[in-house]
Amino acid sequence: MTDIHAKEQTNIKFTVESLNLFYGDFQALNDINLTIEKNEITALIGPSGCGKSTFLKTLNRMNDLEPNVTINGNIYLDSVDVNKDMDAIELRKRVSMVFQQPNPFPKSVYDNVAYGPRINGIRKKTQLDEIVERSLKQAAIWDEVKDRLHKSALGLSGGQQQRLCIARTLALEPEVILMDEPTSALDPISTMKIEDLASELKKNYTIVIVTHNMQQASRISDKTAFFLLGNLVEFDTTITLFSQPSDKRTEEYITGRFG
């Protein structure tokens, strides 16, 4: 068993096996099985309330913060069970999250990006400077903020704030970045910038992105998972899922006939 896994897993970041999640008595995820590959963008699509965010949060155990959540099944990150054999804090440093509403801290641009390195114990100014600059450049926002690093991040536009939040995440040097509808609060140009950024980042990171935007999913993702009422209806390469969906419900959803 372990041998087979070891062979397969060279390119696999997450393996999810028969995952069920309950909020109290309500079952929000129903027997989910899928794998997420390294250096790919995996898109999660589906109508509102189908469990996309819930699933995304199981990947870095953000659900631990909510009361009355029960999870069974297994999630492996590099073949280590995240629920049984990993500390949630460590997990979230490796698998970090970007949210729908840009949520920079009410601190300076610099302090936002330096937050992660600082909680990891990095104190040296030169080292922090370097991480901040590198992260902001990676997030394609350096040119826009380099002259105002020490001003409040809340003065940035929504699109800039979201790229700052991505920079803040990158500063932690995670392995996986989870994005929950990162562009739904943004204008088209900011959206495009974030999409370009995601495509660029997948060279070094694994990305899982929730989106309501079919075009976005087809533009940037390698694999797409379609959720409906807590079930994973279809999971395939994005090209296949959008051109020849094998499930009728998938087809109806992507052609806009419901949802």
Binding site: M62, I89, E90, R94, S96, V98, F99, F105, P106, L172
Partner: peptide, 12 residues
């Protein structure tokens, strides 16, 4: 939102 952001990056 600040709480979520901080926890989402592995803060204690």
């Amino acid at each position: 939102d600040y709480r979520k952001a901080a926890y989402g990056m592995g803060s204690t």
